[in-house]
Design a protein around this nucleic acid. Structure first.
Lengths: 246, 246
DNA sequence: ATCATATGTTCCAAAATATGGAACAACGGA
DNA sequence: TCCGTTGTTCCATATTTTGGAACATATGAT
């Protein structure tokens, strides 16, 4: 197995629940001789992929990751443009907003904009969600054809429930969820794409369940729809469906 | 040469001025057979370190980097705490704020908080600065002993000018710069540390040169000093020097 | 102090991987 | 059509990685 795959396996051990790792942790969790883990992590330190915390033996991702994440965000005009929009919406409504992107079968947050309300959803950037189990993910899946979605899920064939959810999103122009990935949290999401690069991203607003009534939600949807619509127009995204609020 | 070093060399090619790379770019710039570059980048794609933009052959850093950057930020209570503080200062004064960290001889931004003023410094996260050539870097260097700084710069011995700058920062408790790394941009910075982890970070406010007078700057320094002082007190940072505003 | 336990590092030959050159295929422009 | 690109695949050779054990160092308990 290539050392690159091992390095990735180490990096993948990190999560919201596991913010630091020692050589022994890695050896145990990857079931690898600790000699290996030791050398591997030394190599990763040398390349800046890992760094030690202070002068302890605990490791966290290296600072290169910060730079690369920033480059990722800047590499896409679509993301930059959407960030501005969501940032505005977030301050306007006081709720937390996200920009997300599809990566294989998961969605991951590219940028987050914490809300300002006293009761707000805490940013959970870095946490990956199953695409089909989140509003933001489904808003992106709904932009793909049924065949493309099926190809993505060839291993675990998609359910009829998801199919009908997606076709409803295609009609409505937006996706919603209520306490789906996180208890007490509702979300609305709209996807836009850049025909030039075939990127698709999702603009999403999350808010505590129960403090927003139907009217409030519709206002947010309207604002989200308008912001997304402007971006779609700017980029010439013909597949964009203006959200339809009955 | 280990493939891990090659992977890092590829990632290091990315910068604010180079947001995407092709196989040929990499082969040329790293002076490597393109067969190598092709296989290397394929491996990096497989591990998620790189991803193609849409369905072009241009590559950008992979989405893993986004998650890892988020984990880095959350791995440190000190960073989380300082982020809140700088975020507040940034909205209060309307100027852009940063949290930075020292990585060998460079400082890199961990988090940025764009200002709200019409005339504001655009966030330049991901751009690394020489530690000794930026206010934020010097504020951190000033926390280290002269011997430690000398050890860091053993290859290129430090100038007397830097020495005297650092001792002044130690007396004043803050670092400042005027149009140093970027034309038209001034900065003030204060460093705090966490004795438990030996981390040192810098809280920094940047603003357009000429629109802030001495009084305005002193007000910001005072607010920055108070915020940093509270953090230092919380973490038991005995090395913190309360900025001294004459 | 002494022992026990856990940590991370270094050594070696065997096994697996990366390397560079060239040939190959695919695309777009003149 | 031809030409200059691009990215990919093939192969034997050279290099790196692997796993076991010995070694060193730190932490905690008796």
């Amino acid at each position: 197995m290539s050392i690159l795959q091992n390095a990735q396996a180490v990096l993948k051990l990190y999560s919201a629940d596991c913010l630091e790792l020692t050589v022994t942790d890695v050896a145990r969790r990857l079931d690898m001789p600790k000699a290996n883990a030791s050398r591997l992590m030394k190599a990763m330190r040398d390349t800046g992929m890992l760094s030690t915390i202070g002068d302890t033996m605990r490791h966290r991702p290296g600072t290169v990751m910060l730079d690369l994440a920033a480059i990722f965000r800047r590499s896409s005009r679509l993301i930059s443009r959407a960030s501005e929009a969501v940032s505005t919406l977030s301050t306007q409504f006081g709720h937390t907003g996200y920009i997300s992107i599809l990566d294989r079968q998961e969605v991951t947050a590219v940028a987050d904009f914490p809300g300002t309300n006293a009761l707000r959803v805490v940013s959970n950037i870095g946490r990956r969600l199953s695409a089909h189990q989140s509003a933001t993910g489904r808003s992106i899946l709904a932009r793909m054809s049924d065949d493309e979605v099926a190809a993505l899920y060839e291993e675990q064939p998609l359910t009829g429930s998801l199919r009908s959810q997606l076709s409803q999103i295609r009609r409505n122009g937006f996706a919603a969820s209520s306490q789906e990935s996180t208890a007490g949290v509702d979300a609305i999401a709209v996807a836009v794409g850049d025909p030039a690069t075939h990127e698709i991203i999702s603009l999403c607003i999350v808010y505590p369940h129960g403090i927003v009534d139907d009217d409030g939600r519709n206002q947010m949807l309207k604002a989200l729809a308008r912001a997304a619509g402007e971006i779609a127009a700017d980029f010439g995204d013909s597949a964009f469906v203006a959200p339809n609020l009955e």
